[in-house]
């Protein structure tokens, strides 16, 4: 299946530091990936790694410093006209982390879902009711009649997040970006939301699931992108990446996840953070924490290299550059 959204060399820097010592924060640095209909791609990383900035760049809430965002083949990264941005946003919708903050307490569930239908001119006043009922059924909010006229405070956290998902689906989007959609929900109801995302793949939506939780990424996603300090350090099919990680950072991340199946066996952890790089020097950004580091890691920044078919990593040791890097030949 061809990609609906393609990101090429996407970068975003922020000015930081003072007047006397200006510096540039490389929040997102040379990020390349593609989203395909009916597939869920997880974007994993720690806080500060740049994953939320990627989400905001895709939504055009931020303008990239460089790089392209191709939607159905057209670069939307430089769109300035409101009409163009609105048309793009109709196809690319967002689900936020906080279902308590993202719904308007003074509006009913129905009002929340009718609004995008009107804004994007999808349904007239008469069709709207039927469309809202279908949406609520799709996200498992039944019986529809008892939910539609409720206010957010009358709903549980899980129900609110379902309303937020229904709202994102209202405009029939091609791409949905979900930024940590379960992290504020109670443990016992998270699975319900993840199952819903899995079921929504049938709608041929391309999902980007932004998360710090690798186990949930494995549960819902087909592919995974792992970010570290603003860069993608590894990408590939989620099962393969988690079973046999190439990049040393992915390995550290997996080893750190709490796992009730084992006892707390000590792992080696070196100091450092995954926060975005300020004026980064050449070399690998993970080098100070890396148990595998060699001399070249301090001198040149590794490129994303396809080490095995479909398996891409940014590491001089585990994914050495042989023929060409992925920018010359995007992975299938």
């Amino acid at each position: 299946m061809t990609a609906i959204l393609e990101v090429r060399g996407l970068s975003r820097q922020f000015r930081s530091g003072g007047l006397l010592r200006p510096s540039r924060l490389h929040a997102v640095d040379d990020v390349t990936f593609a989203l395909r209909p009916g597939r869920i791609t997880a974007l994993a990383g720690e806080s500060g790694s740049g994953k939320s900035t990627v989400a905001r760049l895709l939504l055009r809430l931020l303008t990239p410093s460089s790089g392209e965002v191709l939607f159905a083949g057209r670069n939307v990264a430089r769109d300035r006209r409101r009409r163009d941005v609105l048309r793009y946003r109709k196809h690319v919708q967002m689900i936020f982390q906080d279902p308590f903050g993202s719904l308007n307490p003074a509006k009913t569930v129905r009002a929340h879902l009718e609004r995008p239908l009107r804004i994007h001119g999808i349904a007239g006043r008469r069709d709207a009711k039927a469309r809202v009922d279908t949406l609520l059924e799709t996200v498992g909010l039944v019986p529809v009649a008892s939910i539609a006229d409720k206010y957010p405070h009358e709903l549980s956290g899980g129900q609110r997040q379902r309303v937020a998902i229904a709202r994102a689906l209202a405009a029939n989007p091609k791409v949905v970006i979900a930024d940590e959609p379960i992290s504020m929900l109670d443990v016992s109801i998270r699975i319900g939301i993840l199952n819903l995302m899995r079921d929504l793949k049938e709608l041929e939506i391309a999902f980007l699931y932004v998360t710090h939780d690798l186990a949930s990424a494995r549960y819902v996603a087909d592919d995974i992108l792992v970010m570290y300090a603003g860069q993608i350090v590894e990408q590939g099919p989620v099962d393969e990446v988690l079973a046999n990680p190439l990049h040393p950072y992915t390995r550290l991340l997996i080893a750190s996840v709490p796992d009730g199946e084992r006892n707390l066996e000590p792992i080696e952890i070196r100091k450092g953070t995954a926060a975005a790089a300020v004026d980064p020097a050449p070399g690998c950004r993970f080098v100070d924490r890396c148990p595998l580091a060699i001399a070249v890691c301090r001198q040149t920044t590794p490129e994303l290299v396809e080490a095995e078919p479909g398996r891409i990593a940014r590491c001089h040791v585990t994914a050495p550059r042989q023929r060409e890097d992925v920018h010359a030949q995007p992975a299938a």
Binding site: G158, G192, L194
Partner: peptide, 19 residues
């Protein structure tokens, strides 16, 4: 309710309802 990090990925059910 905790998806596993290894082994087969089976559909989990969680717990219906809310606390």
């Amino acid at each position: 309710s905790f998806p596993p990090l290894h082994g087969p990925v089976e559909r989990l059910t969680g717990i219906p309802g809310a606390p």
